[in-house]
C-alpha cells in the first residue's frame, strides 16, 4: 500500500520584512519533524526548489501594497486549500500601513529617483481585505509556538488552539507587576491579544500591541482615558496606537482620535 500523500505546504510573501518566515526557520528542534510531515512545495526562504500549486496549506506573509500583489493574492487563494495569513502585515497591514494616514504620492519622489517607475497603492491592507482567509495568526513577528500549533493542527486535522485573552493575563500568570498601575507607564496590554506571553512587560517595557486588538472587546477609549490620567499626552498615545498594527480598525480609530485631539491642543494658545 502506498504511503498517504504528504500535505503540500507553501509559504508566500507579500509586502513584509520576512521576519515571520524566519520564525518558521527558527523552530529549530521541530523543524525537521515538520519538514518530514509535510512536503515543502514552495518556500523560497528555505529552499530554491519551487513546485507549482495547488497547495494544501499556504502561509501568507505580508500585506497588499501594489496593484500587482492585489492580483497575485487571488492566484494564491485559488492555489490553496487552506490559507493562513501570518503576522501583523498579513493580518493588519503592518507598519507600512502608516501610509494609510498620509498621501503616498508625496513620499515617492523623496525615496525613488524615478518616481514614474513606481506603481503602488494608496494603502497597505491585510490579506483578508482581498480574499477569504481560513485563519489569521497575529504578531510582529508571529510566535513560533503558535505557528507550529497551526501547522500541527492542520497535519492532525484539528482546529488550531489560539487563545484570545488580553496580554494582561500573561503578565499576571507570570507574576509580572503591572507597569501601568505600579508605575503609570503606557501599555497596550489591556487591549492587545495574547500570543507573545507578555514579552515586553516582562522586560519592564509597556506592550506595543504587536498582536493587534482583542477580538471584539478592545476598549481603546477606556484605556486612552486611563493613560491620559497617568499623564500621557495625545501625541504620545497617537504614536502608541500607531505602530505595527496601526491598520487594525480599533487601533486605527484610537490613533485618529488622539491625532485629532493633539492637533486641537496645539492650535490652542
Amino acid at each position: 500500500m502506498a504511503a498517504p500523500r504528504k500535505p503540500r505546504l507553501a509559504v508566500i510573501k507579500f509586502a513584509s520584512c520576512d521576519g515571520c518566515q524566519l520564525s518558521i526557520l527558527d523552530c529549530e528542534d521541530e523543524l525537521l519533524a515538520v519538514a518530514g510531515a509535510v512536503e515543502i512545495a514552495n518556500f523560497p526562504e528555505a529552499s530554491r526548489a519551487v513546485l507549482r500549486g495547488p497547495y494544501d496549506l499556504t502561509l501568507v506573509e505580508g500585506s497588499i501594497t501594489t496593484p500587482h500583489d492585489a492580483e497575485r493574492i487571488h492566484a494564491v487563494r485559488r492555489d490553496s486549500k487552506v490559507l493562513v495569513s501570518i503576522g501583523a502585515c498579513a493580518t493588519a497591514g503592518g507598519i507600512q500601513a502608516l501610509r494609510n494616514f498620509a498621501e503616498v504620492g508625496s513620499w515617492v519622489p523623496l525615496v525613488y529617483p524615478t518616481p514614474d517607475w513606481i506603481q503602488t497603492l494608496k494603502t497597505s491592507t491585510p490579506i483578508s481585505h482581498h480574499v477569504k482567509v481560513d485563519y489569521e495568526l497575529q504578531g510582529c513577528p508571529v510566535n513560533k509556538h503558535q505557528l507550529l500549533e497551526v501547522v500541527l493542527a492542520f497535519i492532525s486535522g484539528r482546529r488550531p488552539f489560539l487563545p484570545s485573552h488580553a496580554v494582561c493575563m500573561d503578565c499576571k500568570r507570570r507574576g509580572v507587576v503591572c507597569l501601568t498601575v505600579a508605575r503609570g507607564e503606557a501599555c497596550l496590554g489591556p487591549v492587545t491579544r495574547t500570543g507573545c506571553g507578555a514579552l515586553c512587560p516582562s522586560y519592564g517595557r509597556g506592550c506595543f500591541g504587536c498582536f493587534g486588538p482583542l477580538r471584539g472587546s478592545a476598549n481603546t477609549g477606556s484605556l486612552s482615558a486611563v493613560l491620559q490620567g497617568h499623564g500621557h499626552s495625545h501625541e504620545e498615545l497617537m504614536r502608541l496606537f500607531r505602530t505595527f498594527t496601526c491598520g487594525a480598525e480599533a487601533f486605527r480609530k484610537a490613533s485618529e482620535l488622539h491625532e485629532h485631539d493633539a492637533s486641537e491642543s496645539h492650535e490652542r494658545p
Binding site: A33, M169, N219
Partner: peptide, 29 residues
C-alpha cells in the same frame, strides 16, 4: 461596561477566583 477593559486583571489578582482552562500542545519531534 464602558470602562471595563475585559483584560482579566481583576480575576487574576483575586485570591479566590479559581477558573482554569486546558491547552493541548503537540511535540512532533
Amino acid at each position: 461596561a464602558a470602562r471595563c477593559l475585559a483584560c482579566g486583571n481583576c480575576t487574576s489578582v483575586c485570591p479566590t477566583c479559581f477558573c482554569v482552562t486546558t491547552e493541548d500542545f503537540t511535540d512532533l519531534a
